[in-house]
Computed example of a mutant assay.
Amino acid sequence: MPLKYIFEMPEMVRQVGMAHGILFIAYVLGGILLIKPMKWSLKQIGIILGCSMLPFGPFYVEKKYL
């Protein structure tokens, strides 16, 4: 959004938004694929996937669960 409104570069929103979406999907899929190898409980995977929607949430997950 700063690129669009502050720097007047609306064309960048599409590219940055696409990268953000792909990384979000990769994070969620990675969390799902690691359930069995990491032996996470249902509560833990709920916290891990919930943190994907919080700013800086993945940093908490990395420190606590990985």
Rank of each mutant, 00 (worst) to 15 (best):
K4D: 02
L3K: 02
I22F: 02
I48K: 02
I6W: 11
P58Y: 04
I35P: 00
I35Y: 06
M1R: 11
A19H: 07
R14S: 07
I47S: 04
I35D: 05
L34K: 06
V13H: 00
I6G: 04
A26H: 08
C51H: 01
E11G: 01
M9Q: 14
S41K: 05
Y65S: 04
L3Y: 10
P55I: 03
P55Y: 03
L29A: 13
K39V: 07
F7N: 09
W40C: 00
I6Y: 10
G50K: 09
P37W: 04
F24W: 15
I45S: 01
Y27T: 04
Q15F: 09
I35L: 07
A26N: 11
K43T: 11
G17M: 07
P55H: 00
M1Q: 11
G50D: 13
P10Q: 09
L54H: 07
L29C: 02
P2S: 03
Y5N: 08
E62Y: 12
M1D: 13
I47T: 12
L29M: 10
A26D: 14
F59C: 07
G57T: 10
S52Q: 11
I25Y: 06
F59A: 13
A19Y: 09
G31V: 04
L54Y: 06
L33S: 06
A19V: 12
H20P: 00
P2W: 01
K43E: 12
S52W: 10
I47Q: 05
Q15S: 11
Q15R: 08
Y5G: 03
Q44L: 08
Y60A: 13
F59K: 06
E8P: 00
P10C: 09
Y27L: 14
W40R: 02
L29Q: 01
M38Q: 14
E62N: 15
L29R: 02
M38I: 07
L66N: 08
L33H: 01
I25S: 14
P2D: 00
I22L: 06
K4W: 05
Y65W: 06
G17N: 05
P58D: 03
G57Q: 04
L42F: 13
I25V: 15
G21A: 02
L54C: 14
E11K: 02
P2Y: 04
V61I: 15
M18S: 10
F56K: 14
V16G: 01
Y5W: 12
E8D: 10
Y27F: 11
V16Q: 08
R14E: 03
L34M: 15
M38W: 10
Y60H: 09
V16K: 00
G17Y: 03
L3M: 09
Y27H: 10
I48F: 08
P2A: 05
F24N: 10
I45P: 01
L34Q: 09
L66W: 13
I48Y: 09
L33E: 07
L54N: 04
Q15A: 05
G30Y: 11
G17E: 04
